[in-house]
Design a protein around this nucleic acid. Structure first.
Length: 477
RNA sequence: GGCCCGUUCGUCUAGCUGGUCCAGGACGCUGCCCUCUCAAGGCAGAAAUCAGCGGUUCGAAUCCGCUACGGGCUACCA
């Protein structure tokens, strides 16, 4: 399908300002899938040049999210704040060649300039006042300690065109490009400079990133040209919107993928889900393992329009993946959520719930009655419609005597015995089963009754039936 | 305002080189079957005048243009 290209090197480059949310995870996943398919490398880069937005712990949390989703990166993550000198040297190169210049304008002047532009309904852009400062003067002022930033000198005319792997051919008029800042007065680079320098140093072959970057792509291309470097290929991903149609990344409290782990989702389901946000293999298969995704992935099949995350589909997918797990595996994933249950005790119970779980978190609720005595908070649930407490109580007692006479405690023995009892009582078997179900589990929605009883042990089952009968008696009295 | 990008069932989408699409699949929804509850599973169904308008063509969801709407960017943020 896809030919191996070991020169493929891609990266996911989050800034450590928060958690890994679904949109970010998808960007990472597309990079990951592409790299693995081509036999290339998937790298990580931490874009922490903005000290004011830095959040301690964010990097660790993002890495944990990636690992949970089974995305492993290949080399030591590159951390931009550790490369300050490299960027400064790069800026010096551009200063020397004239592709960039020092700007001594103060923030106050820039603000005033923009206000005037606004008033005149002009585009708000740097007016390039410092671009004409002679080099020797610029150098002298810098040497004298005057604060400055370094700006990229954009071409005044012409157009910049590039072919985007997702968006197609995109053309920008150069006279609309701003002489943006490359190096801040604190000596840190802006995204643009760091991006070009790092992607070059890391030998990145394909830049797969959110389409928020599309408008600055021509600047980035021009930067590569200014350095005389071969630019990478670009693929801009449409964003992922929440159910409210607001970009996920911007929504207040965008969900950390680790919250999906807490909520009982399987990483393979989440991977499958986010892969289909804006991408489709073009076939009718909709359940993919990570390996299958790697094989099927195709950048050119990515949709150019934004996708809304349909969380109901995630629920369904999760159920599909839970059903595909082998029972031992499911047991081990359930175990951490059920500290009260011994791992060995859990295993035989898993087949009872595997078909009915949508999330791992539903397991404890469904299986709780095996590990603790049920509380009959609604004893009226023991009584079938149209009957009374006395009838239900006596049905329970008859069930006790019928069942206690059984030589074997197996579903094969319990089932016919109870059906026989229902017939004898003149009850529909569903009514009898519901009465017993509530007595045994305390709930109306449970795993199959017969199987549950057989695994509960005979004594415990009979005791619960007995005590349910007593509750009914005291209620009737 | 300027610059870019987008627009197929409620949602994710198939549809890429025009006819086999009066538009296919999936989630969700409705009904039926199965059934000890709930699920799962099976079957059936409702659901998109392919944003609108013009053009090219024998023929357009598919090509072109315009308009509308949506979105992104427009910081010494990333």
């Amino acid at each position: 399908m896809a030919e191996i290209d070991a020169s493929v090197r891609v990266r996911y480059a989050p800034s450590p300002t928060g958690a890994l949310h679904l949109g970010g995870a998808r960007t990472a996943l597309f990079n990951y899938l592409f790299a693995r398919q081509k036999g290339g490398r998937f790298l990580l880069r931490i874009e922490d040049t903005d000290r004011s937005r830095f959040k301690p712990g964010s990097q660790a949390s993002i890495e944990e999210g990636l690992q949970w989703l089974r995305m492993t990166w290949d080399e030591q993550p590159v951390v931009q704040s550790e490369r300050k000198e490299t960027y400064q040297q790069a800026a010096a190169v551009l200063l020397e060649s004239g592709a960039a210049y020092r700007c001594f304008c103060t923030p106050a002047r820039l603000e005033q300039m923009r206000a005037e532009q606004r008033a005149r309904h002009e585009p708000e852009r740097y007016d390039r006042r410092c671009r004409s400062i002679p080099k020797h003067e610029s150098e002298a002022r810098a040497a004298a300690g005057e604060r400055f930033v370094v700006r990229q000198a954009m071409p005044i005319e012409g157009t910049t065109t590039f072919h985007d792997l997702v968006m197609g051919t995109v053309t920008f008029r150069n006279d609309t490009l701003d002489d943006h800042v490359l190096l801040k007065s604190d000596g840190f680079p802006t995204y643009h400079l760091a991006f070009a320098v790092d992607d070059h140093d890391m030998r990145i072959s394909h830049v797969i990133r959110g389409d928020g970057w599309l408008p600055s792509a021509p600047k980035h291309l021009l930067l590569f040209q200014a350095f005389n470097w071969l630019p990478p290929a670009f693929a801009h991903l449409p964003l992922v919107l929440g159910p409210d149609k607001k970009p996920l990344a911007k929504r207040h409290g965008a969900k950390d993928v680790l919250e999906y782990r807490e909520a009982g989702y399987l990483p393979e389901a989440v991977d499958n889900f986010i892969a289909f946000l804006g991408w489709s293999p073009g076939t009718e298969q909709d359940i993919f393992t990570l390996d299958e995704l790697i094989k099927a992935f195709d950048l050119s099949k990515i949709q150019a329009s934004p996708a809304i995350a349909n969380l109901e589909r995630l629920d369904w997918l999760n159920g599909q993946f839970i059903r595909r797990l082998n029972p031992e595996e499911l047991a081990s994933r359930l175990a951490p959520r059920m500290p009260e249950a011994a791992a060995e005790a859990l295993k035989p119970l898993v087949p009872l719930v595997q078909e009915r779980l949508r999330t791992l978190n539903e397991g404890p609720d469904m299986l709780r009655f095996f590990f603790e005595e049920p509380v009959l908070s609604k004893p009226e649930q023991l009584i079938p419609k149209g009957r009374d407490a006395a009838a239900a109580s006596s049905a329970l007692r008859m069930a006790v005597s019928t069942l206690s006479a059984l030589p074997d405690w197996t579903p094969e023995a319990i089932d016919p015995a109870l059906r026989g009892l229902a017939e004898k009582l003149g009850w529909p078997s569903r009514d009898l089963f519901m009465t017993l179900r509530v007595a045994i589990t305390g709930r109306t929605v449970t795993p199959p009754l017969i199987e549950s009883m057989s695994r509960l042990e005979k004594e415990r089952s009979l005791t619960r039936l007995e005590s349910a009968a007593s509750i009914l008696d005291s209620k009737a009295a």
